[in-house]
Simulated assay, not measured.
Amino acid sequence: MNPGFYALVGPNAAGKTHYLHTLVGPHAAFVPAGADAKFAGTTVDDHLRAVTAVHPHVDLDFPNARIKDLSVGQRRLLTIEVALAMGKDLLLLDEPFDGIDTSTRKRIRQRLIDYIAGNPQRSVVMASHRPEDFTGLATHVMQVFDHEVSRPVPLDAARLCFPTVTGPTAKIEELSARFSVAESASLGPMTRVTFAEPIGEDDIHLPIEYPDDPELIDLLATERPER
Protein backbone atom coordinates (compact mmCIF):
# COMPACT_ATOMS: atom_id res chain seq x y z
CA MET A 1 0.00 0.00 0.00
CA ASN A 2 1.35 3.41 -0.97
CA PRO A 3 1.95 6.03 1.75
CA GLY A 4 -1.08 8.09 2.71
CA PHE A 5 -4.15 8.22 4.93
CA TYR A 6 -6.92 5.97 3.65
CA ALA A 7 -10.56 6.42 4.64
CA LEU A 8 -12.36 3.06 4.69
CA VAL A 9 -16.07 3.75 4.26
CA GLY A 10 -19.28 1.81 3.69
CA PRO A 11 -22.55 0.76 5.36
CA ASN A 12 -22.70 -1.11 8.65
CA ALA A 13 -21.71 -4.79 8.31
CA ALA A 14 -20.26 -4.13 4.85
CA GLY A 15 -16.94 -5.74 5.79
CA LYS A 16 -14.73 -2.83 6.91
CA THR A 17 -13.46 -4.58 10.06
CA HIS A 18 -12.89 -7.81 8.14
CA TYR A 19 -10.79 -5.95 5.59
CA LEU A 20 -8.66 -4.35 8.31
CA HIS A 21 -7.97 -7.82 9.71
CA THR A 22 -6.72 -8.96 6.29
CA LEU A 23 -4.05 -6.24 6.44
CA VAL A 24 -2.69 -7.27 9.84
CA GLY A 25 0.90 -8.48 9.62
CA PRO A 26 4.42 -7.93 10.97
CA HIS A 27 4.61 -4.43 9.49
CA ALA A 28 1.22 -3.31 10.81
CA ALA A 29 -0.16 -2.11 14.13
CA PHE A 30 -3.88 -2.70 14.64
CA VAL A 31 -6.21 -0.77 16.95
CA PRO A 32 -9.52 -2.66 17.19
CA ALA A 33 -12.89 -1.12 17.90
CA GLY A 34 -13.35 -0.19 21.55
CA ALA A 35 -15.46 -3.22 22.45
CA ASP A 36 -12.83 -5.55 20.98
CA ALA A 37 -9.78 -4.04 22.72
CA LYS A 38 -7.86 -6.48 24.93
CA PHE A 39 -5.49 -5.59 27.75
CA ALA A 40 -2.83 -7.65 29.49
CA GLY A 41 -3.13 -7.77 33.28
CA THR A 42 -5.31 -5.60 35.49
CA THR A 43 -3.43 -2.29 35.41
CA VAL A 44 -1.94 0.04 32.81
CA ASP A 45 1.55 -0.89 34.01
CA ASP A 46 0.75 -4.59 33.55
CA HIS A 47 -0.33 -3.90 30.00
CA LEU A 48 2.71 -1.78 29.14
CA ARG A 49 5.09 -4.39 30.56
CA ALA A 50 3.47 -7.01 28.34
CA VAL A 51 3.81 -4.70 25.33
CA THR A 52 7.50 -3.98 25.96
CA ALA A 53 8.18 -7.70 26.38
CA VAL A 54 7.24 -8.07 22.72
CA HIS A 55 8.30 -4.62 21.49
CA PRO A 56 11.26 -3.55 23.68
CA HIS A 57 11.62 -0.15 21.97
CA VAL A 58 8.15 0.99 23.10
CA ASP A 59 8.57 3.57 25.86
CA LEU A 60 5.34 5.14 27.04
CA ASP A 61 4.66 7.38 30.00
CA PHE A 62 0.99 6.69 30.70
CA PRO A 63 -0.56 7.20 34.16
CA ASN A 64 -0.99 3.89 35.97
CA ALA A 65 -4.50 2.86 36.94
CA ARG A 66 -6.65 -0.21 36.98
CA ILE A 67 -7.87 -0.97 33.49
CA LYS A 68 -11.46 -1.28 34.68
CA ASP A 69 -11.27 2.25 36.13
CA LEU A 70 -10.25 3.85 32.83
CA SER A 71 -12.86 5.80 30.91
CA VAL A 72 -13.73 4.81 27.36
CA GLY A 73 -11.60 7.69 26.09
CA GLN A 74 -8.63 6.70 28.25
CA ARG A 75 -8.79 3.13 26.98
CA ARG A 76 -8.94 4.32 23.37
CA LEU A 77 -6.03 6.68 23.97
CA LEU A 78 -3.96 3.91 25.56
CA THR A 79 -4.50 1.48 22.68
CA ILE A 80 -3.71 4.15 20.09
CA GLU A 81 -0.61 5.44 21.90
CA VAL A 82 0.73 1.88 22.13
CA ALA A 83 0.11 1.33 18.42
CA LEU A 84 1.79 4.62 17.50
CA ALA A 85 4.78 3.87 19.72
CA MET A 86 5.39 0.64 17.82
CA GLY A 87 6.37 2.79 14.83
CA LYS A 88 5.05 0.37 12.21
CA ASP A 89 4.81 1.38 8.56
CA LEU A 90 1.08 0.60 8.52
CA LEU A 91 -1.44 1.68 11.16
CA LEU A 92 -4.91 0.13 11.10
CA LEU A 93 -7.68 1.89 13.04
CA ASP A 94 -11.21 0.58 13.57
CA GLU A 95 -13.59 3.35 14.73
CA PRO A 96 -10.90 5.07 16.84
CA PHE A 97 -13.07 8.06 17.79
CA ASP A 98 -16.08 6.11 19.07
CA GLY A 99 -17.19 7.00 22.58
CA ILE A 100 -14.59 9.69 23.29
CA ASP A 101 -15.00 13.34 24.19
CA THR A 102 -14.00 16.33 22.07
CA SER A 103 -10.75 16.95 23.93
CA THR A 104 -9.53 13.36 23.53
CA ARG A 105 -10.64 13.33 19.89
CA LYS A 106 -8.53 16.43 19.17
CA ARG A 107 -5.54 14.87 20.91
CA ILE A 108 -5.81 11.65 18.91
CA ARG A 109 -6.22 13.55 15.64
CA GLN A 110 -3.05 15.52 16.33
CA ARG A 111 -1.16 12.36 17.23
CA LEU A 112 -2.20 10.83 13.89
CA ILE A 113 -1.06 13.93 12.02
CA ASP A 114 2.29 13.81 13.84
CA TYR A 115 2.61 10.09 13.09
CA ILE A 116 2.37 10.65 9.33
CA ALA A 117 4.48 13.81 9.42
CA GLY A 118 7.21 11.96 11.32
CA ASN A 119 7.65 9.52 8.43
CA PRO A 120 5.97 10.30 5.08
CA GLN A 121 6.41 6.64 4.04
CA ARG A 122 3.83 5.48 6.57
CA SER A 123 0.24 4.58 5.79
CA VAL A 124 -2.91 4.72 7.90
CA VAL A 125 -6.13 2.88 7.06
CA MET A 126 -9.04 4.01 9.23
CA ALA A 127 -12.63 2.80 9.30
CA SER A 128 -15.26 5.11 10.75
CA HIS A 129 -18.99 5.73 10.41
CA ARG A 130 -18.53 9.43 11.19
CA PRO A 131 -17.64 11.43 8.03
CA GLU A 132 -16.18 14.29 10.07
CA ASP A 133 -13.55 11.94 11.53
CA PHE A 134 -11.69 11.98 8.22
CA THR A 135 -11.63 15.76 7.72
CA GLY A 136 -8.08 17.03 7.46
CA LEU A 137 -6.69 13.48 7.63
CA ALA A 138 -7.78 11.37 4.65
CA THR A 139 -5.89 11.61 1.37
CA HIS A 140 -7.52 8.58 -0.27
CA VAL A 141 -10.78 6.69 0.08
CA MET A 142 -11.75 3.03 -0.28
CA GLN A 143 -15.37 1.91 -0.39
CA VAL A 144 -16.59 -1.37 1.08
CA PHE A 145 -19.86 -2.97 -0.02
CA ASP A 146 -20.80 -6.61 0.60
CA HIS A 147 -17.20 -7.41 1.62
CA GLU A 148 -15.83 -6.09 -1.66
CA VAL A 149 -13.26 -3.30 -1.38
CA SER A 150 -12.76 -0.73 -4.13
CA ARG A 151 -9.34 0.39 -5.26
CA PRO A 152 -8.00 3.47 -3.43
CA VAL A 153 -8.97 6.78 -5.03
CA PRO A 154 -7.53 10.20 -4.13
CA LEU A 155 -10.15 12.16 -2.22
CA ASP A 156 -9.98 15.12 -4.61
CA ALA A 157 -10.51 12.81 -7.59
CA ALA A 158 -13.55 11.24 -5.90
CA ARG A 159 -14.94 14.71 -5.24
CA LEU A 160 -15.26 15.38 -8.98
CA CYS A 161 -17.67 12.43 -9.25
CA PHE A 162 -20.31 14.25 -7.18
CA PRO A 163 -21.10 17.61 -8.80
CA THR A 164 -23.97 19.57 -7.27
CA VAL A 165 -26.16 21.82 -9.39
CA THR A 166 -28.96 24.19 -8.37
CA GLY A 167 -31.40 25.59 -10.89
CA PRO A 168 -34.99 25.73 -12.16
CA THR A 169 -36.74 22.44 -11.47
CA ALA A 170 -37.60 21.84 -15.13
CA LYS A 171 -33.95 22.25 -16.14
CA ILE A 172 -32.73 20.00 -13.31
CA GLU A 173 -35.29 17.31 -14.21
CA GLU A 174 -33.95 17.36 -17.76
CA LEU A 175 -30.41 16.86 -16.45
CA SER A 176 -31.55 14.12 -14.07
CA ALA A 177 -32.83 12.15 -17.02
CA ARG A 178 -29.33 12.25 -18.56
CA PHE A 179 -27.07 11.75 -15.54
CA SER A 180 -27.11 9.47 -12.46
CA VAL A 181 -28.47 11.19 -9.34
CA ALA A 182 -27.19 10.68 -5.80
CA GLU A 183 -29.37 13.19 -3.93
CA SER A 184 -32.08 15.69 -4.84
CA ALA A 185 -34.15 18.28 -2.99
CA SER A 186 -36.66 20.87 -4.22
CA LEU A 187 -37.84 24.15 -2.74
CA GLY A 188 -40.49 26.01 -4.70
CA PRO A 189 -39.45 26.41 -8.33
CA MET A 190 -35.80 25.50 -7.63
CA THR A 191 -34.15 22.09 -7.29
CA ARG A 192 -30.72 21.17 -5.96
CA VAL A 193 -29.29 17.86 -7.12
CA THR A 194 -26.04 16.03 -6.48
CA PHE A 195 -25.13 13.78 -9.36
CA ALA A 196 -23.18 10.52 -9.05
CA GLU A 197 -20.94 11.04 -12.07
CA PRO A 198 -18.75 13.84 -13.42
CA ILE A 199 -20.46 16.59 -15.38
CA GLY A 200 -18.88 19.48 -17.25
CA GLU A 201 -20.25 23.02 -17.15
CA ASP A 202 -20.50 22.92 -20.93
CA ASP A 203 -23.00 20.05 -20.55
CA ILE A 204 -25.38 21.98 -18.33
CA HIS A 205 -24.59 25.70 -18.54
CA LEU A 206 -25.14 26.10 -14.80
CA PRO A 207 -22.64 26.64 -11.96
CA ILE A 208 -21.27 23.45 -10.39
CA GLU A 209 -20.38 22.99 -6.73
CA TYR A 210 -18.53 20.09 -5.14
CA PRO A 211 -18.97 18.49 -1.67
CA ASP A 212 -16.64 19.26 1.21
CA ASP A 213 -14.86 16.32 2.87
CA PRO A 214 -17.63 15.27 5.32
CA GLU A 215 -20.30 15.53 2.60
CA LEU A 216 -18.11 13.58 0.18
CA ILE A 217 -17.38 10.81 2.70
CA ASP A 218 -21.08 10.56 3.50
CA LEU A 219 -21.88 10.12 -0.19
CA LEU A 220 -19.13 7.56 -0.71
CA ALA A 221 -20.38 5.53 2.26
CA THR A 222 -23.74 5.03 0.56
CA GLU A 223 -23.04 5.20 -3.19
CA ARG A 224 -21.60 2.00 -4.64
CA PRO A 225 -18.61 2.52 -6.94
CA GLU A 226 -19.11 1.83 -10.62
CA ARG A 227 -17.92 -1.56 -11.74
Rank of each mutant, 00 (worst) to 15 (best):
R75I: 10
Q121K: 14
F97A: 02
A85N: 10
V193P: 00
Q121I: 04
T139W: 06
S180G: 12
E173L: 14
D45G: 10
G10Q: 04
V193K: 02
S103L: 12
G41M: 10
V165G: 00
R105K: 11
G15W: 03
I80A: 03
I80C: 00
I204N: 06
T194N: 06
L160C: 02
A7W: 07
L20F: 01
S186K: 13
L175W: 04
F30D: 02
A85H: 07
P131Y: 03
I217W: 01
T166Q: 10
H129K: 02
A65I: 01
L187S: 11
S103G: 08
H55V: 11
E223S: 11
F39N: 03
I113A: 03
G41R: 10
G200W: 08
P11M: 11
P56Y: 06
T164H: 01
L137H: 05
H55C: 14
E223L: 08
P207W: 07
R159T: 14
A85D: 05
E173S: 11
P198Y: 07
A127W: 00
L220K: 07
A7M: 07
P225W: 12
I108C: 00
D156Y: 04
G10H: 04
R178F: 12
L206Q: 08
P3A: 10
R130E: 04
D69T: 15
Q110N: 13
G4W: 02
D46F: 14
I204Q: 05
V9G: 01
E148M: 12
P225S: 10
F145V: 06
A29H: 00
L84Y: 02
D213L: 14
R224N: 08
G188S: 11
V153G: 02
G200V: 08
T169N: 06
A138G: 08
L20N: 05
T194R: 13
T194I: 06
A177N: 09
S186Y: 06
C161K: 09
L70V: 13
M126K: 00
D133P: 03
E223A: 09
F179Q: 12
V165E: 05
L78G: 06
V165W: 02
L70Y: 05
M1T: 10
G87M: 02
Y115N: 06
T169D: 11
T139I: 15
G4R: 00
S128R: 01
V82Q: 01
M86N: 03
L78F: 09
H57A: 15
P198T: 09
C161N: 13
A158N: 08
P189V: 15
G15D: 05
S186W: 11
H27Q: 12
L206I: 01
K68R: 15
P207Q: 09
R192S: 09
D203M: 09
L23C: 06
L91T: 04
R66L: 08
D218L: 12
P120V: 15
E201R: 06
L219R: 15
